[in-house]
């Protein structure tokens, strides 16, 4: 690691203030950022820990019935704290290992937007709203490609609001080494239609599979997507799977998610 200053503000305002200098970075659970620092792949002048900012931690319901999760809430807290949204709880419960889940946060995961991460699929399929210290961003406008988001420099995710679907499920096919998603599909059925978000597969990061959404919106059953497939072009190809394989898994995981959502 390179040397850096470390501050631990107690309030959101102090955190926003502390993040003003260009070289400052927010520190959530550190599960992505700390390994990056250890490899000297980032050199912030200052780390602003969000751990002490109580107001961005915790889970509640708003008057529209949405599950609202503070940006500093850990994966373990989500796994145990959203009984009304079991698919989301199950997703959080299967991220990494206990150490990762006890430190890593939803805000950190969404800010990082790793193309193989799980939360982006949940946020996009749920039509969640990402709330920051300055604004509210619809999930559809938030993800801008691998590791790219609509966040501005120094902007902090304070809350993520998830509309609760009638039925939902996340199917994660694990990359054998990292156990991130080689392909992960989140299917969420709402009164006004079905949303399907795919992570791990595309070179553009998380995406909605609209063809499947349309088919499922009229017939929410695995059969409805039986014949559908995404093109291999644009899918990630690496040591763990070709673009063709990933494209194939998108279909398999979508059918399984629909079957499991019931």
């Amino acid at each position: 690691m390179y040397a850096f200053d470390f501050v631990r503000p107690k309030s959101l305002n102090e955190a926003v203030e502390a993040l003003q200098p260009e070289e400052a970075m927010a520190l959530g659970g550190g599960q992505t950022l700390i390994p990056t620092l250890k490899q000297r792949l980032a050199s912030p002048s200052k780390l602003v820990s969000l751990k002490g900012v109580e107001e961005i931690r915790g889970i509640c319901r708003d008057d529209q019935g949405r599950v609202c999760i503070g940006g500093g809430t850990t994966h373990a807290e989500v796994a145990a704290g959203v009984p009304e949204y079991p698919a989301l709880a199950a997703l959080a419960a299967n991220i990494g290992d206990p150490a990762v889940r006890n430190r890593g946060t939803i805000g950190g995961s969404l800010a990082n937007n790793d193309p193989s991460a799980c939360y982006p699929a949940a946020a996009l399929a749920s039509g969640a709203t990402i709330v920051t210290n300055t604004r509210e961003i619809a999930a559809d406008d938030y993800f801008e490609g691998m590791f790219m988001t609509a966040l501005e420099e120094g902007e902090i995710i304070t809350e993520v609001r998830f509309p609760v679907p009638q039925a939902a499920n996340y199917q994660k096919f694990e990359q054998p080494a990292s156990r991130f998603a080689l392909v992960g599909v989140f299917v969420a059925k709402f009164e006004d239609g079905v949303r399907v978000a795919v992570t791990g597969a595309s070179e553009e990061g998380v995406f909605r599979w609209t063809e499947a959404e349309e088919a499922l919106s009229s017939n929410f059953s695995p059969d409805a997507v039986q014949g559908l497939s995404v093109p291999a072009e644009g899918m990630i190809g690496d040591l763990h799977g070709s673009p063709e394989y990933r494209a194939h898994l998108v279909g398999v995981m979508t059918r399984r998610a629909v079957a499991a959502a019931g």
Partner: peptide
Amino acid sequence: LTPSRVWA
């Protein structure tokens, strides 16, 4: 024998 190789 990774999943992708077996599938292929």
